[in-house]
Write a protein that binds this DNA or RNA. Structure first.
Lengths: 364, 364
DNA sequence: CTGAAAGCGCTTACAG
DNA sequence: CTGAAAGCGCTTACAG
């Protein structure tokens, strides 16, 4: 093989193309020349192949460091067919300002990225909202081995898109997809342990001496979790010999406005109640606002508990008691389920453990 | 070329390898066979090369859709040397719970991802904290064309790492890196227009009739922005013929605790003041807490303005007046600066415009 | 306007 | 334990 010493090519280049002006790039051939071994040995040594002698590996590692060599992942992936990457799609409401995005999903995103990193995977993140910009063909493009989809149930078109995608066959396999927040039950999902969480919230209010507890929720919302939380509340009430009471929210407003209206309606109707369990924190914050506007004191006259454990709950007065999912566990479960699916080892459906975050809004 | 009809390989495969069991994959050769053209024509047609006739392009597009063909990006990138991807590194405090992460950076992350997407780029996101897990060699690995680094100034080791990295030469080029939050001035950065913002906050308090305005800040914090905001406040005070007064924060606590302590110390020292400008919202929220503990009413006795416009500020009582950067602009500027750097066209340093978010904590 | 061919930089059977 | 060679699936000069 003739030495090719053109300025634009690697000195150890094997067959540099004719007139192409590509910047010089250190390749495994350069490292091989530096270490005095073959290119295949460089590849094996750096991949940690145990068949390579330690002396050789040391020489190769040193040469690689000296030349600041790093594997071209595109070449490696083209060859192996593996990407070591997971796509994470965050579904937003169309037209929503990024600042108004539910902070719960941000924490979940962070947790998913951290979990993927712990498992040795990169994360390709995209925020998607408009129907014409929906995209999930990461496996076909060999950009990722699977997809985590998280975000608001409200964006029906987005969920329809990913629901269809999950049915699609990809080159003798299937689309690997795990989600949080889907309105569909036949997508592989991870969710909070809503039943236990709602029972915990309700039991906590009962223990504090509240008995006329109502629940702000929706039975028709695409948010599956809302229904589950209402059911958990209802079951706990029945267990205590009390009658569950549902206060429904009107769609078409922000969660907070829905909560405010629900509380206002409750008071306007002259309902007798001494506590509210709201199925998410944003509803609870709105309800708190509504109660305050009506001059109802929390927690003295009415106790209040939310769900999700968002940061803003810690800043209101009184601070909001809530049910908090284990965020770290949530990210880990999403990633581990997806990796298991990719590996062809299905796992049981999983529920993220929750705990009571006791703050000021629920103790008399 | 002999037809190769093994179950594991593409029917139009060109030279399938011997015993390898790779799942079937649709390639441009399959599309070529389907459309009755050569593989190179498929490549040109799908790349939008104007040299291809529209009739041919239509046939190719149809064949590609029929076979659910998508370009293998690894092969394309290996060939072109371009990735179409930007890395986004979010620097966290080591050991920090993902839930406690400053929400400001989440909104910024979302905005960066959205801006990259609008510019036709993917985003490879990682959250980094521990020194031994710092990693930024995305260009060397050909995973990305450049890096956006955002996050807390507090993690010195992380910033040192990326500072060194930015000096590193990569294969006849340099590391392309733009950041937000760096304690270093020689890293390419984008920041809020802190001077204008601080003047806006101070002017707003003056207009509302407050005159004995103090500023909770730090002159030694690695957060460059704090110094800039203090300077902006001080200049506006001098302009009004008033004396600026700095209340320094003690390091080693959460921002909120620092704010609470600063307010408490101010009261304990018997200082005469009727308004506080805190250089970030988390300090302001803490100060509000401290004032409330001391029985000082806001905004009647003391006015309060923060900086950053975080969501939690809307939920406290009274709601916090703040200076809000244009998040969409922030993401766009970070991405556009980075893309310009990659293209070798340097751009002026840029300041993100800010606006006054007038809520309840600053009107008498 | 289209096709045949080279080559991007790796990994991995296959020999030795 | 190491090397020579094939091939992953594209893009792009080079011919025609």
């Amino acid at each position: 093989m003739p030495e090719d010493k053109t300025a634009t090519r690697s000195p150890a280049a094997h067959g540099a193309s004719a007139g192409q002006r590509r910047p010089y790039r250190v390749t495994s051939f350069d490292v091989a020349a530096e270490a005095g071994v073959s290119q295949s040995t460089v590849s094996r040594a750096l991949a940690g192949d145990p068949v390579v002698s330690e002396a050789t590996r040391a020489r190769v590692t040193e040469a690689a460091a000296k030349l600041n060599y790093h594997i071209d992942e595109n070449a490696a992936r083209l060859r192996t067919g593996k990407t070591g990457t997971l796509a994470v799609v965050v579904i937003c409401r169309p037209g929503e300002n990024i600042k108004d995005f539910n902070p719960f999903y941000y924490a979940l995103l962070g947790s998913v990225c951290a979990a993927a990193s712990r498992r040795g995977h990169e994360t390709l993140v995209s925020f998607q909202d408009l129907p014409e910009r929906l995209w999930g063909r990461y496996q076909e493009q060999r950009k990722a081995d699977g997809i985590v989809v998280i975000g608001t149930s409200e964006n029906r078109e987005a969920w329809n898109y990913f629901h269809d995608l999950a049915q699609t066959d990809v080159t003798h396999g299937q689309t690997h997809l795990v989600c949080w927040g889907s309105p569909f039950d036949d997508l592989d999902w991870v969710r909070s342990d809503n039943d236990a969480g709602a029972a915990l919230a309700t039991g906590h209010l009962l223990d504090a001496g509240y008995t006329r507890i109502v629940c702000i929720a929706s039975e028709t919302s695409p948010q599956r979790q809302f229904k589950e939380r209402y059911d958990g509340y209802a079951a706990r009430m029945v267990e205590a010999g009390l009658k569950p009471r549902l206060v429904t929210i009107e769609e078409g407003h922000s969660r907070e406005e829905q909560g405010r209206r629900a509380a206002a309606a409750l008071i306007a109707a002259g309902e007798s109640f001494d506590a509210i369990f709201a199925v998410c924190d944003e509803l609870a914050l709105g309800a708190l606002h509504g109660l305050r506007e009506a001059g109802v004191s929390v927690p003295e006259t009415v106790g209040l508990v939310g769900f999700d454990g968002i940061r803003a709950g810690a800043h209101v007065s009184p601070p909001l008691t809530s049910i908090e999912p284990d965020f770290q566990a949530a990210g880990t479960m999403l990633v581990d389920r997806l990796l298991a699916m990719i590996a062809g080892k299905p796992v049981e459906k999983q529920r993220v453990p929750v705990s009571l975050l006791e703050r000021g809004s629920s103790k008399r």
